[in-house]
């Protein structure tokens, strides 16, 4: 119990530190954002009209109070969930933009991560159980070889062959224009169709880490004394493989999974960009390109919170799965 309370306290502390850093870093950047926007609006003008700057300042609601008050305001807006207006998608709010893209990323990311984890862990466990056999060699070598290929290249290849050449799947986007977003069949099937290629490109690489991690952990554990003792006990192969081998070997993978869940929020920048998929990764990329600070800051904040939450879940899970951590002296 104390273990869990301590983990939670650590989580709150890191979260506060991250939020505060997120507040400080943009303010360390030189220059005035309002002035920058004015300059971008009139690229040919050499001088900046102070009235224009003041107008933009008002429009964006840029603060003129001191830094401590700003910090307090910042915390209040965070609690209320107000993240301001996006520069590049003006007049849409940041919240609106994230609300638009988050579901796409969440669904694609969660589904591929989960499938990749399950498939990878199972393949790894089976390879370890039949180690040095043909299955092991093929899996391990195959995974290692695939891992050396650049994923964006495979994605481009898939896009070219399956979408352009054969036309099996749409070239990009999240759904076709004639479908109305909502819980209707036309939209869901269209969204599914659009997600196949990005999902396949992710899934080709997703299991590699899990396979290799699981296999190596389990090979070590199968050589340990307690696994040999399980054999001496006359337990069935299944029980030895699952309860003595896989049960212990999966622990680092589970921790890795929880951390990867946190990473979903950031989306897969490269894959989403290649398939023009309307997710968080592409949003982040555009925010970076356009210097859209409020949007960038908020996406980062989401990623930070996601990773920290996942970290917390990983710690809790570890505590449940591994008694050594929970009651360790």
């Amino acid at each position: 119990m104390i273990y869990f309370v301590r983990r939670f306290a650590v989580f709150l502390l890191t979260l506060w530190a991250a939020i505060t850093l997120n507040f400080i870093i943009p303010r360390l950047q030189p220059g005035d954002p309002a002035e920058r926007i004015v300059r971008r609006l009139n690229p040919n003008s050499r001088t900046v009209d102070p009235n224009q700057v003041e107008a933009v300042r008002k429009m964006l609601g840029l603060p003129d109070t001191n830094i401590f008050e700003q910090y307090l305001q910042y915390l209040q807006t965070l609690v209320r969930g107000e993240f301001g207006v996006s520069y590049s998608y003006f007049p849409f709010t940041v919240t609106h933009m994230i609300g638009q893209t988050l579901p796409w990323t969440l669904v694609l990311g969660a589904v591929t991560l989960f499938i990749g984890f399950v498939v990878g862990t199972l393949l790894g466990a089976w390879a370890a159980w039949r180690r040095n056999g043909p299955f092991d060699s093929v899996t391990t070598l195959g995974a290692t070889f695939l891992g050396t290929l650049p994923s964006f290249w495979i994605a481009l290849l898939l896009l070219y062959v399956c979408a352009f050449k054969w036309g099996w799947f749409p070239v990009g986007g999240g759904y076709s224009g004639d479908a109305q977003p909502g819980w209707n069949w036309a939209f869901i099937s269209s969204a599914f169709e659009h997600s196949v290629l990005p999902a396949v490109s992710i899934l080709l690489f997703a299991p590699i880490g899990w396979i290799l991690g699981m296999r190596n952990n389990m090979v070590t554990i199968l050589g340990d004394d307690y696994t040999r003792l399980a054999k001496a006990k006359g337990l069935s192969e299944r029980r030895i493989a699952l309860w003595y081998g896989a049960r212990v070997a999966v622990l680092p993978n589970v921790a890795g999974l929880a951390l990867a869940v946190g990473g979903i929020l950031g989306g897969s920048v490269v894959i989403e960009q290649i398939f023009s998929y309307p997710g968080m990764g592409r949003l982040l990329f555009e925010a970076l390109r356009d210097g859209d600070y409020p949007l960038m800051q908020t996406v980062f904040l989401f990623i930070i919170i996601g990773v920290l939450l996942a970290d917390l879940v990983a710690d809790f899970l570890y505590g449940v799965l591994d008694p050594r951590v929970r009651r360790g002296g």
Partner: peptide, 13 residues
């Protein structure tokens, strides 16, 4: 059997 170094011969989880 009882193994050498039974420290490690029990399943830790």
């Amino acid at each position: 059997t009882v193994f050498q170094s039974s420290m490690n011969s029990l399943n830790p989880v």
